[in-house]
Write a protein that binds this DNA or RNA. Structure first.
Length: 575
RNA sequence: CGGGGAGUAGCGCAGUCUGGGAGCGCACCUGCCUUGGGAGCAGGGGGUCGCAAGUUCGAAUCUUGUCUCCCCGACCA
């Protein structure tokens, strides 16, 4: 490709609305431009990287026996009403009506559509296993799109859906996808982890997320430093412990704590460690049910764990008014002692063995000290409710300690079970002629997000450092002063053509620009290998080969430079 | 949704408080010059100051409304 005939609108300055480095660099390198909030044009350089990744995904999906198809982005409301998600999905689902006033949505995911197709076409156990995938544009009307392609509203996603005769077969499909995902992200040279995850609105029984490690990541993940355990904090378990009962003889005592509402204020006021306090938080399922959760003062509640422990569909904090009406006390002094009858109280496992705790007295301006579980107050049950923190013991192995990381979720695999197939009536006849429900799995990869995550992980002050498999071009050829030295131009052209003949993707910077501009643009756009043809070197028949990643510069005879590029690219792409 | 901030040339910004000429740097066009890390000189083109009302002799600037974008919050009892 000739630079002068291509389109790479680079920016010297960083646009002010770009927060994270991948967003900044994708704008500056002329890969993307914003059209509206969370909606982007993919410019030629951006599209080339995206296509590179798509093709890796495609190869690995095909290798794992998934079958490519393409579903529409516009979907009829009826299908979503059948699964109940028309109500459940909320405002993220972009809905609209056609001229006949029929309701539609722009698909944020395709379980309904693919399951509808399967229920029509698949009737026999002989037709399974099946796994359909597509690479397609989705739309989710995010509350807060941000970070460029990292969290857009419109985005490209690879989604796959497996269909199996039973749970065991579905597990095999899941394993195949899991393995395919490992290969995909390894091929991209990404530093990533597969972690256990909550299933969220997609639903299903179990799932793993594939996380690219990056400080700017929106997710927190916990991993064990000695075994393979790793999980999203939303899901990460604390180590279960045997019940321990306090045998304290210190009597319960009520203390006046005027205006000391927060746990920190109370602990400071009473001169106790925050670990000695218990806080009470009230949550609602939005449909009139409430629960009081008890946690050690320094711990954070994990809302997802509480939601799952209560088996609720939704969860939110109770409002001040609701709290007053269900507990009888104002926010700031809540506690389990003396709450109104009927309020469910659930305690975190960390309350095991806590003795003589400070806890809200459930009346204005007072707390109890020396409160003890069972002796002074009762709860309905205990559960794992808190977020894990660095330094916790591993829930799976004896000696491991939990470490925390930030990650960008680039892939997610789910075991769906029969959640959708049951609602949509996707069934088959088994060998005995008996009707059964199909078992499903679904598997997503954020295409644009993975490219962004790769940049997040591979850049320096000068710009992007693409790994060869994702780079828009493998190599660039820069002719210095092509207008002045015709031998330079001729040599550069020859190198360019030879490399292309070898199957190398080359960007030939033939522009009549000063060297500095060409070098800067080359570094910014992240092209992994660079050949510079200059007058001086050419007199000795040599050109310069620079490795973007290491900064290494080699002065080589032309043929050797070409051979080395060919070899480097082949090695990087081999898998 | 709540809170904060911002909309002035393609990009980055000043001007707004205290009303009166629409500006600066980069980019772009022309010419000269320069040519190994975003040069220099000279000349030039480009903006309904987000939009709509209002106040005023006069509005980028004041008032009201509205739209868009960005950031933060969603662990607090």
């Amino acid at each position: 490709m000739l630079y002068s005939r291509f389109f790479i609108p680079t920016l010297k300055e960083t646009p002010s609305d770009a927060e994270v480095v991948s967003h900044q660099l994708m704008l500056r390198a002329g890969m993307i431009r914003k059209l509206a909030a969370g909606i982007y044009n993919y410019l030629p350089m951006g599209l080339r990287s995206i296509r590179k990744f798509e093709n890796i995904v495609r190869e690995e999906m095909n290798r794992a026996d998934a079958i490519e198809m393409l579903m529409p982005s516009v979907q009829p409301a009826e299908l979503w009403q059948e699964t109940g998600r028309w109500q459940f999905y909320g405002k993220e689902l972009l809905r609209f009506r056609d001229r006949k006033d029929n309701e539609f949505c722009v698909g944020p995911t395709h379980e309904e559509v693919v399951t509808d197709m399967v229920r029509r076409e698949v009737k026999s156990y002989r037709q399974m296993p099946l796994n359909f995938y597509q690479i397609q544009t989705k739309f989710r009307d995010e509350i807060r799109p941000r970070f460029g392609l990292m969290r857009g509203r419109e985005f490209i996603m690879k989604d796959a859906y497996s269909f199996d005769v039973d749970s065991c077969a579905a597990d095999l499909s899941y394993e195949k996808m899991y393995a395919a995902y490992m290969r995909i992200f390894e091929r991209c040279g990404l530093n990533f982890r597969a972690v256990e995850a909550d299933t969220g609105t997609i639903g299903g029984s179990s799932s793993h997320e594939f996380m690219v490690l990056a400080d700017s990541g929106e997710d927190a993940i916990a991993s064990c430093d000695s075994c393979r355990y790793a999980a999203n904090v939303e899901k990460a378990e604390t180590r279960s412990v045997l019940p321990v009962h306090s045998t304290s003889q210190t009597p319960l005592e009520k203390i006046s704590t005027p205006d000391k509402k927060s746990i920190c204020e109370v602990a400071a006021f009473l001169g106790v460690q925050i670990e000695q306090t218990i806080k009470a938080l009230v949550f609602s399922n939005g449909e009139g049910a409430f629960v009081m959760s008890l946690l050690r003062g320094d711990h954070e509640l994990n809302e997802i764990k509480l939601k799952n422990a209560m088996d609720w569909d939704d969860i939110r904090m109770a409002t001040d008014d609701e709290i007053l009406s269900v507990t009888g006390a104002p926010v700031g002094f809540l506690g389990p002692i003396g709450v109104k009858d009927g309020l469910v109280i659930i305690a975190d496992l960390a309350l095991n063995g806590m003795a003589d705790s400070v806890i809200g007295a459930n009346e204005t301006d007072s707390h109890y000290i020396a409160a003890n579980l069972e002796r002074d107050f009762v709860i309905q049950r205990m559960a794992d409710l808190r977020n894990v923190v660095a330094g916790d013991s591993c829930p799976r192995c004896e000696s491991g300690i939990i470490q925390m990381w930030r990650g960008i979720e680039v892939g997610h695999v789910f075991k769906l079970g029969t959640k959708y197939s049951e609602k949509l009536g996707a069934t088959y006849l088994d060998a005995a002629g008996k009707e059964n429900i199909i078992f499903m799995g679904c598997y997503g990869i954020g295409i644009g997000r993975t490219v962004a995550a790769s940049i997040e992980q591979n850049h320096d002050d000068n710009g992007i450092i693409f790994p060869i498999p994702l780079a828009p071009f493998h190599c660039s050829v820069i002719a210095l002063n092509p207008g002045k030295d015709s031998a330079v131009l001729a040599a550069a052209e020859e190198i360019y053509l030879k490399l292309e003949q070898l199957g190398i993707e080359v960007l030939f910077d033939d522009r009549d620009e000063r060297p500095g501009i060409k070098f800067k643009d080359n570094d910014l756009t992240g092209i992994p290998l660079r050949i510079v043809v200059g007058s001086k070197g050419l007199l000795e028949g040599k050109v310069e080969l620079k490795i973007r990643k290491s900064g290494e510069i080699l002065l080589l005879p032309i043929d050797e430079a070409i051979a080395q590029i060919k070899q480097t690219v082949d090695e990087a792409l081999a898998y």
